[in-house]
Nucleic acid binder design. Structure first.
Length: 444
RNA sequence: GCAGCAGUAGCUCAGUUGGUUAGAGCACUAGUUUGUGGAACUAGGGGUCGGUGGUUCGAAUCCACCCUGCUGUACCA
């Protein structure tokens, strides 16, 4: 008999998409519960918006005939383009514009939601991920900007990240803006390229950044990146000015003053923080973890920031004539989860069920009775889901990391006393029915 | 997108200058124990050697193209 050629459906996942397992999800749930607690304390309201929006509602990546998928996942529905949201800020702007007359001003909201980006994934970076956002819309007060930093610190510390393990880096768009003005750098394209270059100090160091501010840079693989073509003189002035790390602008001075009111000092001024280019107008900040994070081969990797934010005073009025200055923060939860699970001290308790072994289908009534007693006492319990030899049932219990099995077969039924087997020690004990709950609680 | 490297079992990988029926460890299945998991032993299943075409008596091995992945880089709201 010859084997028939069959093309089976692929088991592979699309690039950048992953299955997430319980271990990870429990950590995520833990973080989320801390976030919600803090958000309530800070007076933010909870909002959810849909995954899809009309493409032209959520930003600059308008699908066109040539490249409808640039950066976002889009499709044409009837004759309108829809896109999966790529962040939570653009939908917020849309929401505020749509509900402007009803919502309180200023409007404070937080949102947890999956976002999608059609771009190349990297270690710890996926094309589908969960984001947390908190924003103030409709206030120019820098109190808001400062409070966001204080708030994220509280969340991190609640999650077990100690003060020495993270830092908030803060800067303002006005720093580079004023600098460019002073140096008479007016070409918009040049300014954007220069900002992008400055954003890479962490990775490339000043040497690489200076190449990018000038003619350009060749990377390790030999690929060449064009630079901003600034004059050597200007490049030097920029380097000297930024290396001084003096927060000259008024907005920064004020934010730092408010930090003092809050007794918040776990930050540093870092003029190399740039973030989204066309978007932020004032203060910008980034949340960085300082402990080592390793990949699955045990190598320490450059983890970068787990999130950040800043002031975007022009976004909402793109939708209408509302003056809605805003400031906000976004955190990538998956990255935070990944980092947290790497901390040795970090443990989340997983309760696995006690397994009641099935000796005889006809005894099912007894097993259900036992299960009910245990579940009522709050003990996670399951009757072995199937019909198999005891050996199989034990293997199953072992595989799911069950703490104990209950053996209640012919022998035990006679006396009405079940056998309890502790699966980590291997110890077996005949237990009075009355004592069963007590004995199990000792084990789990 | 650009550049470099790589693709052999579910996973990690070996496979000599091209040569019979492509291997190992882990995992999986069955048994050694018809009421006992984690250890050991025995046996077993599982591969279009990424795909297509070419060179050759003969290709996992050489060549071309394509696909996929990894890394760097670009973009990143």
């Amino acid at each position: 008999m010859t084997k028939e050629k069959k093309s089976k459906p692929s088991k592979d996942l699309p690039l950048g998409f992953v299955d997430r397992q319980e271990k990870e999800l429990l950590v995520r749930d833990f973080i989320i519960s801390n976030i919600k607690e803090v958000m309530i304390k800070y007076g933010f309201q909870y909002l959810e918006t849909p995954s899809f929006e009309y493409s032209d509602s959520i930003g600059k990546f308008l699908p066109d005939k040539d490249r409808p998928d640039e950066g976002v996942f889009s499709f044409k529905d009837e004759n309108k383009w829809l896109s999966l949201r790529y962040d939570l800020t653009a939908p917020l702007a849309r929401y505020v514009a749509k509900n402007y007359l009803e919502i309180p001003k200023p409007f404070k909201r937080y949102q947890l939601g999956t976002v999608w980006r059609n771009e190349k994934p990297g270690p710890g970076r996926f094309r589908e991920f969960l984001q947390f956002d908190a924003d103030f819309v409709g206030t120019k007060s820098l109190q808001a900007d400062a409070e966001l930093c204080v708030m994220i610190s509280e969340i991190l510390e609640k999650c077990g990240v100690t003060k020495s393990e993270y830092i908030i880096k803060i800067s303002s768009r006005k720093i580079t803006e004023e600098l460019f003005k002073k140096l008479n750098i007016n070409n918009n394209q040049q300014k954007l390229t220069a900002l992008r270059a400055l954003d890479k100090i962490d990775r490339l160091g000043w040497q690489g950044v200076k190449e990018l501010l000038g003619e350009g840079r060749k990377d390790k693989s030999g690929d060449f990146t064009k630079g901003a073509n600034l004059s050597t003189q200007n490049i030097e002035i920029i380097e000297n000015e930024l290396k001084k790390k003096i927060p000259k602008t008024d907005d920064l001075k004020e934010v730092l003053k408010i930090f003092k009111d809050y007794n918040f000092d776990n930050f540093e001024f870092d003029p190399s923080i740039i973030r989204g280019l066309e978007y932020y107008t004032g203060t910008i900040f980034e949340v960085n973890l300082k402990f080592d994070v390793t990949n699955n081969k045990g190598q320490v990797i450059q983890f970068g920031s787990i999130g950040g934010g800043g002031r975007y005073d022009n976004l909402v009025n793109n939708f209408g004539n509302y003056d809605a200055p805003a400031t906000g923060i976004s955190i990538g939860l998956d990255r935070l989860v990944y980092a947290l699970t790497q901390k040795k001290e970090f443990k989340i308790k997983q309760s696995k069920p006690v397994i009641i072994c099935v000796f005889d289908k006809n005894l099912m009534k007894e097993y259900v009775g036992l299960q009910t007693i245990l579940r009522k006492s709050g003990i996670s319990t399951e009757i072995y889901p199937g019909e198999n030899k005891l050996k199989k049932q034990m293997e199953y219990a072992n595989k799911i990391k069950s703490p104990a099995v209950i053996l209640y077969g012919e022998d035990e039924i006679k006396t009405g006393k079940p056998t309890l087997k502790n699966l980590s020690s291997g110890e077996e004990k005949i237990i009075e029915m009355k004592e069963l709950v007590y004995e199990i609680k000792k084990i789990i």
